[in-house]
Amino acid sequence: MFFASDNWAGASQPIMDALARHNDGYSPAYGGDPLTDQITQKFRDIFETDCDVWMVATGTAANALSLSCATGPGGAVFCHKEAHIRVDECGAPEFLSSGARMWGLEGRHCKLTPDSIKNGFEEIPQGVVHHGMANAISLSQATEAGTAYSVKEIEAMSDLAKSRELALHMDGARFANALVSLDCTPAEMTWKAGVDMLSFGATKNGAWAAEAVVFFNKQLGKNFEYRRKRAGHLFSKMRFAAAQFDGYFKDDHWLANARHANTMASNLIAGIQKSKKAQLAWDSQSNEVFVYLPTDLAAKLETAGAAFHEWPENTLAEEDKPQDGFGLYRLVCSYRTTDQDVDQFLDFLKD
């Protein structure tokens, strides 16, 4: 019963096969190989536009380096107060952007709203040098709470960004999970809705270590290759990063993985909703499920081998905090989650 994180799952077989397939012989280093060119074109085909694509090893690098392209002296990035770039990246976005602040804003279930952004505009007004200068808005898709921004919500954020000439960034660590949940195209969920740059994650969805920065606004990323090199993320054997994406995209493997993980999460939700011992905290639009459990039951589950994460209560809105004797727990499904994992967990919730 492994629900701690989708990072716990290993690489999927098609990706491992692709790594082996592209291992023979010699190929130019540092991205000068034919496979890297092919994968760049594959990204352009998937997103239906002439975007620039740069591969890196980690989501932290993808986020920090892309945001560094949008920020300047005294810069700030509006994001949710629980966004990964603000809470879980050890200050890398600030460091690699030469000090830009990740300006945390409120929003229930880790989603920014137009009102959140307008509050940010009031906190960092234009032309007041003492407060700094807002440069970007960053959205997590799917969010840290398992929710997702609809295409219309992304468009609304884009309109607000454009009203202040801010770049719109998307942290897509779980991009595929949000995409299949919304049942739209990659283009519709990104540049057609006004997204300027995307951190495209594959690692959580079956890759070994494969992330990419995609610039739909190519002017923003004109010097990105130098930032990537300086940060130590220019692979010498770039073909192995590209090989992972080759296996990831082949026969829509990436979408199949995401659909499976989301389905397992939906099955968990269905079982939780039938239980009298547990309560669904809020609806999920990805592979993450948040549930209220009695703390003694959570302890029994862990003793039985279940792995999951207790969510910090101090990050929650008052209406989302668990009642006495209960805790809020996050369950994350992956492409490797099985029906047996789900059924075994739900058995503990039966009367």
Results as ranks from 00 to 15, higher is better:
residue 191 W to N: 07
residue 326 F to E: 09
residue 143 T to D: 15
residue 109 H to I: 07
residue 154 I to K: 09
residue 211 E to H: 06
residue 56 V to I: 01
residue 303 T to Y: 04
residue 127 G to C: 01
residue 31 G to F: 11
residue 273 Q to C: 02
residue 317 A to M: 05
residue 305 G to D: 13
residue 201 G to L: 06
residue 275 S to Q: 13
residue 341 D to Y: 00
residue 48 E to G: 03
residue 183 D to F: 11
residue 1 M to K: 08
residue 89 E to G: 00
residue 247 G to Q: 04
residue 187 A to I: 12
residue 196 D to S: 15
residue 216 F to P: 09
residue 218 K to Y: 14
residue 238 M to K: 14
residue 105 L to C: 13
residue 217 N to A: 12
residue 14 P to M: 02
residue 216 F to Q: 09
residue 288 E to G: 08
residue 199 S to Y: 02
residue 258 A to D: 10
residue 190 T to I: 07
residue 247 G to P: 01
residue 99 G to C: 09
residue 215 F to N: 12
residue 16 M to H: 01
residue 10 G to V: 06
residue 80 H to T: 13
residue 292 Y to L: 10
residue 192 K to I: 12
residue 320 D to N: 14
residue 261 A to P: 03
residue 283 D to V: 12
residue 67 L to V: 11
residue 208 W to E: 11
residue 117 I to D: 09
residue 147 T to H: 04
residue 86 R to H: 07
residue 334 S to Q: 04
residue 314 N to C: 08
residue 155 E to Y: 08
residue 314 N to E: 01
residue 343 D to V: 03
residue 108 R to C: 04
residue 286 S to G: 13
residue 331 L to H: 14
residue 343 D to A: 08
residue 244 Q to I: 00
residue 240 F to R: 01
residue 4 A to Q: 11
residue 267 N to E: 00
residue 94 E to M: 11
residue 327 G to E: 06
residue 289 V to K: 11
residue 286 S to F: 15
residue 197 M to L: 12
residue 99 G to V: 02
residue 158 S to W: 07
residue 149 Y to P: 12
residue 301 L to E: 00
residue 190 T to D: 02
residue 292 Y to T: 08
residue 118 K to T: 11
residue 141 Q to P: 00
residue 39 I to F: 09
residue 248 Y to F: 15
residue 325 G to E: 06
residue 178 A to D: 15
residue 126 Q to D: 10
residue 193 A to Y: 10
residue 280 L to A: 06
residue 104 G to P: 12
residue 275 S to K: 14
residue 7 N to C: 09
residue 302 E to L: 11
residue 65 L to G: 02
residue 110 C to M: 14
residue 311 W to P: 06
residue 247 G to W: 06
residue 298 A to G: 05
residue 178 A to C: 15
residue 90 C to Q: 13
residue 63 N to K: 00
residue 86 R to D: 01
residue 309 H to G: 05
residue 37 D to S: 15
